[in-house]
Every structure is written in structure tokens, then in C-alpha cells.
Design a protein around this nucleic acid. Sequence first.
RNA 1: CGGGGAGUGGCGCAGUCUGGUAGCGCACCCGGCUGGGGGCCGGGCGGUCGCAGGUUCAAAUCCUGUCUCCCCGACCA
Length: 568
Amino acid sequence: MTRLSEYWLPTEKQDRPDAEAISHRLMVRAGLVRQLGAGMWTWLPAGWRVHERAVQIIREEMNAIGGQEMLMPVLQPAESWRKSGRLGIEELFKLTDRKGSELVLAMTHEEAVTTHVAQIVSSYRDLPLILYHFQVKERDEPRPRAGVLRTREFIMKDSYTFDRDAEGLEERYQLHVGAYDRILDRTGLEWYRVQSDVGMMGGLGAHEYMAPCAAGENEVALAPGFAANVEVASAFAQPVELPPSQPAPERVSTPGLTAVAGVAGFLGLPAGALLKAYPVVLDDARLVMVLVRGDHRVNEIKLAAVLGKPSRPARSEEIESQLGPPGFIGPVGLDGRVEILLDEAVDLAGSYVTGANVPDAHLRGVTPGRDFQFRPADVREVCVGDTVNGHPIRIERAIEVGNIFKLGTRYSEPLGASYLDASGREQAIWMGSYGIGPARIVAAAVEQFADEHGISWPSALAPFAVHLVAVGKRDTEERAAADELYETLRAGGIEVIYDDRDVRLGEKFADAELLGCPVRLTVGRQALADKEAELQLRRGLQRAPGLAIGGARADLIRALEELCQGLP
RNA sequence: CGGGGAGUGGCGCAGUCUGGUAGCGCACCCGGCUGGGGGCCGGGCGGUCGCAGGUUCAAAUCCUGUCUCCCCGACCA
């Protein structure tokens, strides 16, 4: 039943003043979603249709690689989370039942699926397996934002693979790469598959699927043949013109100049001719000095990977007591008291300016290796101007719509998921986990294709293929013609929303453009005279040749189907 | 967790500083005109001013506490 006079599509003329992201604004205005609380969203009928179109594409591609759909509960015993070591996660909702039993609301389903597999699988003959479900995820996000982009409850397709060994995992992983590539292609989104951080879980490899748009919370670095989350990206730095080398470091007075820009300006050097000292403290309270070029920034995720453990920036009093005055610290003369990590973008033969470890002074003519010992490491964040294989990189904001992750035995070991191999030996099962968020796909589609009039859906996701607008009042000839066309389209299997409301035409057109179905058909007096419904394509608001409505119904349906096939 | 802002009919807001009859636009209901880009006229319905406590003859307004929501940052297994 998709007559607008009876359909629950609460559109709004005005934007919500507090909605910033395009998708947040338009999805509320178009009547697709409504907010219930912070990070809690209801999908209204038209919005749910879009969501389910994304779901169906995902389901078909998962089935195509041999995935088996199932359903696991959100409410779970805390025990397996304790075993896996994830009970302490702050984002995990925890609760107790009336008997005092500890429960959690699952944020993903590794614990549940691995528990089942541990119980059920016992032989190498039972493997491999690809299991998946669409299920609600609960996460106590510190800051939900941007409509459905970051919520505390959302539906995710998560799949889990179980293999005998690393080679099997690689195979299952590649199947997911193929499936995810096809899913993203089919949605009509612009997207990238990027290398990503394996996180604190220490996985064996991971990729993210990113949809570029302004509301994105991630940044991706891109060049021909190269795509990576800036969290992990590495590239060649643009060279810097350095001053001539000196036989030994020389102290220069730099009163009050604690920032790179100030020192560089004062000495007439580019920022890249300085070495910026970034002291961090490890969990065992050990201090490490990280040095990057003055025009670069430390990437804390890459740093954590190099250090093998998390660190935090050192506090002023720690810097003061162990190194020197904050703002004037440097690597020279520390005599091995603190470890020094030197970023690989630093020219080892170069002559640099560093802090002197005394107030209001820097050293110039400092050369790594000669003047201080160090461990080389790639710890800087890539930036515009860097190159990969000679191509300059660009950096774009993007929404993470999916991720795939080689887990290895991270969960199978603590949860006891093992099998007997052909020789009767017990082996840990090798796992992978793979997530994709239909809501984020939907929001990304809004972000990528909206214009000043509203949403413009890719055909694959549109709530309806055709938005049919009746012009005339009730009980007129043109209204009767529109009614008839609606019934014809329905009978022909076309997904159509029919605006039969008794409101002004301007309001109908405005709502049609807001909702963003790919094809708009209008039936009024002119159409009736020409025996053609007026046709406008939503993408670009192009007027197209009319659709003949006088002839055979089958011809009309075929013409419309052909038209829809060709739309983006 | 740090910083900023906001809670007043369904929605968007004014009123709060300086306490004294709760108001405007949209939406909604009724009637009429109009009918190819959010139209016009007339009449109506609808609000314990987030919640709790306090001050006062009197509180949307002053005081205290508390809850919720939004934005920026931190965080995001």
C-alpha cells in the first residue's frame, strides 16, 4: 500500500537546526528516520525499505560465497566475554538479571559464534565454515553523532569464518574481499578498500571499506594503486632543503620560541629542517623520545605498532625532570638515558635544528647518528605532498561502511574452539571476522549524491523506483488517469510510491525531490492530452522524454524497466 | 572525559537580564476561495514552560540540585 495519502512518510519543510551532517538532515526531513534518544534511531517505513535493500544485496553476495545465514542473540552471558578478555571494554553494555547473573549486550558476536563452534566442531572434516547474521549491535558510544552514522544501537551484518589453518583463513578472507567488492559496487556508492589498523587485538591483517564523503569520521590516503587509512598509511615524504652540515652542533639563542613555526621563522629555515621531539611514556613509566621532521606529525597508531604497546604523551613535569624545559628538548646529550625513535622521513646525512635541553636555546647542525643514537621507525602521519611510487597522494574524508579482519586464533584459543586434524592432533581453529553496516551504506549514499533539493538515491537503494505524482483534484479525468497508471505499474511489478494527496503540486514535487526516487512520473492535463506521463530523472533533475501511457500495458512496463536499468 | 550550547503546544522559536493574564510562525481541525512548484481568507483545538526542591503575596523568569539533547575535541576491539 503505497499511496502517499495513506503512507507514513512524515516529511518536513524545515531542517532541524541541530543537524549538521547532510545525511542526518535529509534522512530526518525526508521522513526516513526519527530519533528516540542519543544514538537511538527508529527507521520509518520508507527508510526501512532502503535499509532492507542494502541488506538484501549483502545477503545475496554472502550466500554467493557459501555463507550460511543464522541468528544469534544480543543478550548474552558475561562468561564468554570474561574468557575472551573483552568484558572490560568500556563500550560494552553490562547488566544483571533478577537472579544476579551477569549479562552483556553484544557489540559483536565473536564470543557467541566461537562458543557454538567450539561445542559443535570437532573434526577437520567440519571445516571450513562461513557463518553470518544480521543482528543488532549495542555499543555504549561516548559520543553518538551525525544521525545514523554513529549510533549506540545498529544493525550489522557480521560474518565469521572458521578454518583449519592460515592458508584456509587467507582463502576465506579473499572470498570476503570479492563479496564486499561486489556489494559496494552494487550499492552504487563510490568506495575504496583500504589497508587498516589491526588494532589492539593484534590481528593478522585487515581492510576497511570506505565511502568518501564530508561527514566521514576517517581519513584515507589515496594514490594510483594505493589506498590506506591514514592511521596506517606510509608514503615518501617530500624532500626538504636543508642547510649545509656543520662539524658539530652549535647552540643558538631562541628566547621564548617553543613552537616549530617560531623557531623556523626566526632562523630562516623551512619547518622540515627542524626535528620535533615528542616525548611519550609507556605503561611501565619508561620515557621514549619520538623525533619527526618539524613539518610532520606523529601518528599515534603507527607509533603504538612500533612500540608494541600503547603510550601517552609525557606530562610537562615528566619532561622537565627527565629531559629539559618543555619546548626546548632534543636528542643530543641524553647519553642513552631515554630511547630515541627517529622517523624514517628524516635524512640521516642532513643537518637539523633541535631543542638544546636548556631554556631558550636550540642546536643547529645536528646530524643523526653522529650527534645522537636512535632507532629508525616509520611513525609519522602521511600528509599532502607525500608520494607513493612517484604519484602524489591525496587525503579524503570517508565513512567506514565495512571492515574485514583476520583474527587468527585470538578467540578460538581462549574459548576452546579446536579440531582434530587428519593425524589426530588437536589444532586451534583459524578465524576471520567481517562486518558491514547497512545503515552506514544508506547514509553514505545520501551524503554522496544529495543536492540542494534533497536525496538522490542510487537505483539499487531507492525506496521506490518510481515516484508517481497526480496533478488534478479528486474526481477529475487526469486523476483517474493517474490512478490507472498507478495500478498498471503495481500490476507490472514496478516499485512505486503514488502521491495521491490532495495538496498543492509544489508540495508534491518538493517532497518527491526530497525523497529522491530515481524516476518521477507526473500525470496532469497535459499528459492526458499527449498520452504521455511526464518523466523527470532525479539525478541532476533532468527532464526526459515522456512515457507513453496510451498503448499496451506490457509495452509501458518494458519501457520503464529498460529506463530504470540504465540509471545509476 | 574536557570545552561550548539548548530544554516553553506536534515542529521551529520569542518571552527569562528587570518575577505579575504564556505569545508568534508552521502544522493540525472546521468553512470558503484557489488549483502545474510549499496559495489566500475566516473561525478553532492544543502548553502542569524537562524534572525535583527552595525563595516570594506571586516563579517560564530568582536560587539549589538533577535529568535529557545537540555541537567541537578526546575516544571508537
